[in-house]
Amino acid sequence: MIQPMTGKELEYIADSMSNEDLLMKQCAAVVATGTTPALRNLCSQMLQTHQQHFDSLMHAISHHQQMAPTQPQQ
C-alpha cells in the first residue's frame, strides 16, 4: 500500500540524488584520466549503476506526485 511521501523522505531522496550525481562525475573522471585498465572498467560499470540509482530515485518522486496533497496538512 503506497503512502504519501513525507518531507523527511523527500529530503533523503534529494540528498541521495546529489550523491549519485557526484559519484557519476567522479567515475567519469577515472574513466577519462585513469591508467589502470581494471579500475577504468570498474568505474565505467559503476557509472551506469549510479545512473540507474539516480533514475530510481527520480522515479520514486514522480510516483508520489499524484497523491501528494496540494494544501498543507495538519
Binding site: Q3, E9, Q26, V30, G34, M46
Partner: peptide
C-alpha cells in the same frame, strides 16, 4: 588515479550509511 578512486571509495562508504539511515527513517514501505 589513486586519489580519485580513494575519494570514490570513501563516498561509497558514506552513501551506504546514508541509505541505511534513510531506510530506517522512511514511513512508506515502498
Amino acid at each position: 588515479e589513486e586519489d580519485l578512486v580513494s575519494t570514490i571509495l570513501s563516498d561509497l562508504k558514506r552513501v551506504v550509511r546514508e541509505y541505511a539511515t534513510a531506510a530506517t527513517e522512511s514511513t512508506c514501505p515502498d
